[in-house]
């Protein structure tokens, strides 16, 4: 029982990071119909930038914020590339994001290095004793920050004019244009927002799992799985998907073998696509014509 509780806690912690990556996938998919396979590299860029800014002697808070800004700028660069090739098919644009991901990995290898890096926990290395198992301060921080981001996103989409414009554009892009919404600006905000959220996940996770230039491959795919499990339509579905995935992974690693941990995401992904293509909530997004 104590064991199970421990597995659940670590599953939820990493699940929230998958959720943050998954939110990025849905936000971009909703507005542009594109699966952005650079999403994982946004996570890497966030973590690696923070590590190296810290090494350069900047304080943690400043490094954190700069890393988010840098990653958002990378998101905007990707948007500009996509906007530049606006007459291409969606498949070409998806391949463009894959190419951009490979480019970012290469760039990180050159600008930074190939070593594995970690950084101190933001809130100290302490932990709570929870019914015989430990809950580290960093885990708590990940959960709290993720929940704050999700709640803030909810209010952003529901209560602000820009958020509503983003919703409108994702539901009916032509009607949104007729309302006077500048769709290019909205798309750019979406890419920057997705990158920012992913990079926060990357920074938060680094003290726990370390980071290097290719950590984005696996995190990107896990985030993608989270988004698909959640139905690839709602950012909040991606949160549920991420949590489900994180917990499943943690349970398999704990009770079966940690060697199978990474397989969980892909088996879950295939199972969902075969048996519940609308995600665990069964939403099917109407095709935009």
């Amino acid at each position: 029982m104590i064991e199970l509780f421990g597995f659940l806690l670590s599953g939820v912690t990493v699940g929230f990071v998958y959720a943050l990556v998954g939110i990025g996938f849905t936000v971009i998919y909703n507005s542009s119909g594109i699966i952005n396979f650079s999403q994982g590299e946004f996570v890497m860029a966030g973590g690696m930038s923070t590590v190296f800014l810290l090494k350069a002697g900047l304080p943690l808070g400043v490094s954190f914020i700069l890393a988010i800004l840098i990653t958002s700028m990378i998101g905007i660069v990707l948007y500009k590339l996509i906007a530049f090739s606006k007459n291409s098919s969606q498949i070409s644009l998806i391949i463009l994001t894959l190419g951009f991901a490979i480019f970012l990995r290469g760039l990180a290898e050159v600008v930074f290095d190939k070593e594995l890096h970690t950084m101190p926990s933001f809130v100290g290395d302490g932990a709570f004793d929870m019914f015989g198992t430990v809950l580290t301060y960093q885990s708590i921080l990940i959960m709290v920050v993720s929940i704050v981001i999700v709640v803030a996103l909810y209010f952003f989409f529901k209560k602000t004019k820009t958020g509503q414009a983003m919703m409108a554009a994702s539901i009916n892009v032509d009607a949104a244009k007729l309302m006077g919404i500048n769709i290019k600006k909205i798309l750019m905000i979406n890419f920057a927002l997705s990158a920012a959220i992913a990079s926060i996940g990357g920074v938060l996770l680094t003290p726990i799992t370390s980071t290097n230039y290719e950590v984005g491959i696996m995190l990107g795919l896990k985030g993608f799985a989270a988004a698909i499990i959640g139905g690839l339509g709602s950012p909040f579905g991606a949160v549920a998907g991420g949590l489900v995935l994180g917990i499943l992974e943690s349970l398999i690693a704990g009770y079966v073998s940690s060697e199978y941990k990474d397989a969980v995401a892909f088996v879950a992904l295939l199972a969902i696509l075969f048996f519940m293509p609308g995600g665990i909530f069964g939403n099917t997004k109407a095709q935009r014509v």
Partner: peptide, 21 residues
Amino acid sequence: PEGRGLFSILSVEENLRLGAY
């Protein structure tokens, strides 16, 4: 537009507000 172009999963009031965007 043709087919009305409503934002189907937004409320009636949210649709009206978007008209005043």
